[in-house]
Amino acid sequence: MKIAVTGLNATDNPGPGVPVIRCLKEAKDLNAEIIGLFYDSLDPGIYMENITSACYMIPYPSGGLNELYDRIRAIHEREKIDIIIPTLDSELYGFVKLEGKLNSLGIKTFLPTVEQLNIRAKDVLFRFCESNGIKAPKNILANSLQDLYSIPKEFNYPVVVKGIFYDAHIANNFEEVKNAFNKVRMKWGFPIIIQEFLRGDEFNVAALGNGTGEMTGAVAMRKLYITDKGKGWAGITIDDNRFLELSRIVIEKTKWRSGIELEFIKSAETGEYYLLEINPRFPAWTYLAPVAGQNLPYAMIRLTLGEDVKPFSGYKIGTIFVRSSWDLISDIKTFEKITTFGEIEWRK
């Protein structure tokens, strides 16, 4: 079997591709070759040993779905891909729209629907949470500088200024809000989300929904070290059922079909649990899950193949990940292949 995985950007803002691949390689019952799909010739996952059998550059979905489809079809003619796992938020809409055409080629996927993606989008999350009894920080959507003038009435400073897909800045006054607004607007466009800032510890859940409303598995983690980009650089699995219950509600209400990451904050002031974000794919720390006892990506492969997957029960508490920075050494010939031909084969 051949499984293609995107998101090989294992950088300081890491994509989930490499950890998802590590999970699949951990599955003893899975005999699969991994094909890496990348957008940038310097994505570190391309250069890692024993991660992929071959890697191929693909065009960004924003550049046109036809181009993306044509490229995948060309790769498929060579590789005969059985399953594709897109792992990046920004590419998901594109892959969801291509799902039917990919299925026609014989490539299976396990993706949420456009409706499901829309429910959890950062600009409508508050409404979703409110109607399902889940606490979420208040927010306003800004589509122009003019909208920023409503902030002081709604919240106290600091506030969080967030892009629709990525990026978040903490702003302590109106001037900082304007600066952050412009930065995010240039990068990610509108709307910009202005969110109430909550103090507290951050907790994340990696989970898998089977598409019927059932949660196949979930692992909760507390961030032990957070980078200046807000990324968890170390974390520990924890035993707090409240996070799992809230994740179960989200998966049940959305009938989520795929991997998912839920980001929570436990308010230092009130001790209440707030849902900050729902990310529509496995997180970059997914590899913690199989080590703790739940191989969620492998379970997703089994669901993709139509197998009956029993929900996981429990996981090992106190399992820790510490992310590292590690230089990969390559040579100019390899780099030439990757940049000039957009592909590299590692098979011996």
Partner: peptide
């Protein structure tokens, strides 16, 4: 009940990871 302490005095709170 859930708090575990080792012989070295290392204390782990499973509900928060502290």
């Amino acid at each position: 009940d859930t708090i575990a302490i080792s012989d070295s005095g290392f204390l782990f709170m499973p509900s928060t990871g502290e």
